[in-house]
Computed example of a mutant assay.
Amino acid sequence: MDVLSSRTLLKPRDHQVSIEFYRDTLGLAVYRTFPVGTVFFLGQGFLEVVSEGGTGSGDVSLWLQVRDLPGTLAELAGRGVTVDREARREPWGLDEAWISDPDGTRIVLVEIPADHPLRADVRPD
């Protein structure tokens, strides 16, 4: 299988409310709009919010890496976002906090500490 691109698709209960949350509250940039959906940039991927009438989050979670977790949480609090779980260092060494979209989809906000192995320069000397 040769994957050229990918997107996560969400089918919210209320399309407009979810569009406003991702666009206005989280401040995600719009990549494309279609008559039944809006595609947002998500770092190296995309999130598409399509039509409406879904049943909510199910077992889907979004993992979003941010540069500054405390700063991001403060910014989102200023926009009225409630933090479901405050930031903390996980046993695997990442700093994580949880928020939710209007349908309850968990959004994991992650900061990778400077000394974490994911930040190691693996290029040969």
Score class of each variant (00 low, 15 high):
Leu94Trp: 00
Arg67Leu: 13
Phe46Gln: 11
Leu69His: 01
Arg67Cys: 09
Leu76Met: 08
Ala97Ser: 03
Val81Ile: 15
Glu90Thr: 15
Val49Asn: 01
Arg67Phe: 07
Gly58Arg: 10
Gly80Pro: 10
Thr82Ser: 12
Gly93Val: 07
Val66Phe: 03
Trp98Gln: 10
Glu86Asn: 13
Arg79Trp: 14
Asp68Arg: 01
Phe46Tyr: 12
Gly104Phe: 04
Gly80Glu: 11
Ala87Met: 01
Arg88Cys: 12
Pro102Arg: 05
Val81Pro: 08
Glu48Pro: 03
Ser51Asn: 09
Ala97Lys: 00
Thr55Leu: 04
Glu48Cys: 09
Val50Cys: 03
Gly54Ser: 03
Ser51His: 09
Trp92Val: 13
Gly71Val: 14
Pro102His: 07
Val60His: 04
Thr72Trp: 06
Leu94Thr: 02
Leu69Tyr: 01
Glu90Gly: 13
Asp101Thr: 07
Leu62Pro: 06
Val49Leu: 09
Gly56Gln: 02
Gly58Ile: 14
Ala87Asp: 00
Asp59Arg: 14
Gly104Ala: 04
Ser51Asp: 09
Leu73Glu: 00
Glu96Gln: 01
Glu90Lys: 09
Glu90Met: 15
Asp103Asn: 01
Ala74Gly: 11
Leu73His: 05
Thr55Ala: 06
Trp92Ser: 09
Phe46Ile: 06
Glu90Leu: 11
Glu52Asn: 06
Gly93Glu: 06
Asp95Met: 11
Arg85Ile: 11
Leu62Val: 08
Ser57Phe: 07
Asp95Ala: 09
Gly104Gln: 02
Trp63Cys: 13
Gln65Asn: 13
Trp98Ile: 07
Pro70Cys: 06
Asp84Thr: 15
Arg67Pro: 06
Gly58Ser: 06
